[in-house]
Measured scan of single mutants.
Amino acid sequence: MSGNGNAAATAEENSPKMRVIRVGTRKSQLARIQTDSVVATLKASYPGLQFEIIAMSTTGDKILDTALSKIGEKSLFTKELEHALEKNEVDLVVHSLKDLPTVLPPGFTIGAICKRENPHDAVVFHPKFVGKTLETLPEKSVVGTSSLRRAAQLQRKFPHLEFRSIRGNLNTRLRKLDEQQEFSAIILATAGLQRMGWHNRVGQILHPEECMYAVGQGALGVEVRAKDQDILDLVGVLHDPETLLRCIAERAFLRHLEGGCSVPVAVHTAMKDGQLYLTGGVWSLDGSDSIQETMQATIHVPAQHEDGPEDDPQLVGITARNIPRGPQLAAQNLGISLANLLLSKGAKNILDVARQLNDAH
C-alpha cells in the first residue's frame, strides 16, 4: 500500500501541473516587456503551470559599433537563445518575429505568432524639431536608422535628408537623439515604442507609400524545439490566425527572394473581405531603383483552434497545428507568387547589386 502511495506522490510531482516552463529572452527592456506579455497570456491559459524567465545577451546586443547589415552573420539576435533551447536550458524563446530568419536551424520551429501590433515605422524627432515631419525637416538634416530597408525607401522619398546608421537598443538610440546634436530624427518601429509606453515620442507614423515595413514587423514569434510536442501544444494558444497568415505570406515572399538583413526588402499586408493583399518591394541601397507589386488571394481566416493538420510540417519556419492547413498554404503560395513576379521584373539584379555594395563598404 505504502509503495503505491509513493508512486502516486511521484506521479503528482512529475505531472504537468508541477512543471516549471523556462522562457528565454534577450536582456533589453523591450525584450523583457514583450516576454512578460507572452508569459502573462500563458499564465492565464495555464494557471497550474509556473513560468521562469531567463534573460541573456546576444551577438546583436554586444556589437554596437557596426551596422547590422555589415556584421555579416545571420541570427544576430537569436543564436545564443537557440543555443540555450538546444541544450534544454529553456523550453521556449520569445523573439520579435522580424529577427527570426525565414529558414531556422534544424530542430527549431516557430510554435506561435502572437497578435500583431502596429507594424509601421515611426519617426521620433529631436526636441528642437518636435512638430515637424520628415518632409518639413531642414535641408541636409541627419536621420538615424539601423535599417537598409528604411534608408533606401526614405532616401527616395525625401532626397533633402541624409540617413546615417544608429545602433543600440531603444533606450540607447533615444538617448543619442536627445543628448547629442548629430541626429534631427530617428526611425523606429511603432510597436516597440508603444510597448515601452513611449507613445508621446511618436512624431509621425510612416504610411506604406512612404515606407513599407519589415517582414514580420510588429509581431512576436515564440520559438521552440520542433519535436517538443508538449510545448508546441502549450504555445499553440498564442497563435493569432490573421497575423499568422499575413506573416506566412510575408516570410514566403522574403524567403523566395532570398532577402535578408543586408538587402532592402519591404512588405505591406492587409486582410479585407476574405482577401489577403500582399505588397512587396525591393530597392537599391540608395533607393534610386525599385520594383513594387501587389497581389491578392482569397483566404478564409479560420477561428482559433479549428482542428489543424496533425502532421505539422513547417511552413517558412512556422508550425501551427491548430490552424487549418489550406489557408496557410494559400498564404505561402501568395508570397511565392509575388516573389516570382518581382524576380521576373529584375528584382534579383537589384538585390545582387545591393548585396555587393553593402559587402564592399
Rank of each mutant, 00 (worst) to 15 (best):
F108G: 07
I187N: 05
N118L: 06
D121Q: 01
S344Q: 06
L278H: 03
E89Q: 14
E293Y: 07
E80K: 09
K70M: 14
K98C: 05
Y277H: 15
L342Y: 13
L206A: 01
P324K: 06
L68S: 10
S147T: 05
E258K: 14
V222E: 05
E52Q: 01
L177W: 01
E162P: 01
M295Y: 15
K62V: 13
L64I: 11
L329M: 15
L342T: 07
G107R: 09
L76C: 14
L245D: 01
A331M: 04
D289Q: 15
A151N: 12
I63P: 12
S57E: 06
G192Q: 01
K43F: 06
V90Q: 05
V267E: 05
M271D: 15
D359G: 13
F163C: 11
D233N: 13
N88W: 13
A122F: 03
E82R: 08
N349G: 11
Q181W: 10
A270V: 12
G72V: 09
E89R: 13
I166V: 06
N88R: 11
V130A: 11
L76K: 14
D91H: 04
P309R: 11
G111V: 04
S69F: 08
V103E: 09
S147R: 04
K43W: 09
E86M: 10
K98F: 01
L100R: 01
T172M: 05
R175S: 11
L177A: 05
L104H: 10
R32S: 08
G308L: 11
V38L: 08
E82P: 01
L177I: 07
K98A: 04
P119K: 04
T66W: 08
I166T: 06
L278C: 12
A297V: 07
G326Y: 12
E293Q: 14
G274H: 05
V235K: 01
E223C: 15
G236M: 01
N349P: 10
L238F: 01
K98D: 01
G216M: 03
D228I: 01
L97F: 10
Q155W: 11
L161H: 11
N322Q: 10
K132V: 09
E139I: 14
V142R: 12
K345I: 13
G221C: 10
I187S: 07
H199R: 11
V103R: 11
S165V: 09
N118K: 08
N333S: 01
A330D: 12
G107P: 03
V267C: 14
G48H: 04
S344T: 13
I205E: 14
E209I: 01
R156T: 12
E250K: 03
T25Y: 01
Q292W: 06
D121I: 01
L137G: 03
P106W: 11
G216Q: 01
A360D: 12
Q229T: 07
A122T: 10
L49Y: 15
L64A: 15
L343A: 08
S57W: 10
G107A: 09
